[in-house]
């Protein structure tokens, strides 16, 4: 970390590189300001605008947040999302790391086929996913009908508020695991081969290579998977909405926290301030967890230490 010393900071090549750094990032910075910061800042501003039933909107630093936190539906939604995360995240992490490491251990044709098939469900989204999963979870028409019947004991649809964490975990793993496997496998193949070879020359077993060479080398990706998955999990919205479209009587409209935000923004009240306030609270939880992960894994360092 010699670059931190003031003497080097002011040297001419360093200044030239600093200018190049700004130049290289300029197009991205423009896009970030226009399509990242601007809408986010506007959303933040909206969180402090209170919609009145009668009369003009008012500015308040706390009113929307207090209203949201006092909403009786929030507790249920938050508990639903928490239960879903506890079902889905550990299963996803174990599966994607196990798959990527198994594929890397022996790069066979069969492993490549598995990697391909793991990815395909990720391409099925929106209305197509709605059609597919509604059929999958209706015992009379589903290829896994007998298993569903054994679990629920009836022929009625398996979809309900209580089974949603399990359904969403299966949907989430089916649609999301393939992408992570590709990324992690890519990271594993990016490890310089002489590192692996020298470990093997020193007599490391396959398992020791995994624990002491491969996993430490892809440590940044562990943090990356965790942060993005946490954010996606907390924000779960499309899947419960999609499932609900086919079984409206079985699923609450505000099953997840983000669905509650959507109901604020689009429901009878058109209360965009409350929707923004809830999004900010949700984001605060995500950022809090992300900061802990970043601190723990030293994610930001310029060089690999």
């Amino acid at each position: 970390m010699s670059g931190k010393s003031p003497a080097l900071r002011t040297s001419l090549p360093q200044r030239r590189l600093a200018r190049k750094g700004l130049l290289f990032t300029a197009p991205y910075v423009v896009l970030l300001l226009l399509f990242g910061i601007t809408p986010a800042a506007y959303g933040l501003y909206q969180a402090f605008i209170v919609t009145k039933i009668m009369g003009d909107p008012e500015f308040s630093l706390w009113q929307n947040f207090a209203d949201v936190l006092g909403d009786y539906r929030l507790g249920t939604s938050a508990a639903n999302v928490a239960l879903y995360m506890l079902t889905w995240l550990p299963a996803l992490l174990i599966l994607v790391f196990a798959l990527a490491l198994a594929m890397d251990a022996k790069r066979s044709k069969f492993a490549a086929l598995t990697r391909f098939l793991t990815y395909v469900p990720g391409a099925i989204t929106g209305s197509a996913a709605a059609l597919l999963w509604l059929f999958m979870f209706s015992p009379t028409v589903s290829p896994i009908g007998p298993a569903l019947r054994a679990l629920s004991g009836t022929d009625a649809t398996f979809v309900s508020d209580e089974t949603m964490p399990l359904i969403l975990a299966i949907m989430g793993i089916s649609a999301g695991a393939g992408g992570w496997v590709v990324i992690l496998f890519g990271a594993l193949t990016g490890i310089p081969s002489d590192l692996i070879e020298s470990a093997q020359l020193d007599g490391a077993t396959a398992w020791q290579t995994v624990w002491h060479v491969k996993l430490p080398m892809i440590r940044s990706y562990v943090a990356f998977v965790l942060i993005v998955s946490l954010a996606n999990g907390f924000q779960v919205f499309v899947e419960p909405t999609v499932i609900r479209a086919g079984a409206p009587a079985h699923i609450s409209q505000t099953w997840s926290v983000n669905q509650l935000a959507y109901v604020y923004a689009t429901g009878g009240q058109l209360n965009y301030g409350r929707a923004s306030a809830l999004s900010i609270l949700l984001l605060a939880v995500c950022i809090g967890l992300a900061v802990i992960i970043i601190k723990r894994t030293n994610f930001y360092s310029l060089e690999d230490n």
């Binding site: 970030l32 506007y42 993005v228 924000q235 935000a261 923004a265 923004s276 999004s279 984001l283 995500c286």
Partner: peptide, 21 residues
């Protein structure tokens, strides 16, 4: 930091401001 932060912002939360923009 901003890059990571904006990756975490819910898409649904940005849709309306984006529409107005």
């Amino acid at each position: 930091f901003l890059t990571l932060l904006l990756m975490l912002v819910p898409q649904a939360a940005l849709i309306l401001p984006m529409y107005l923009e």
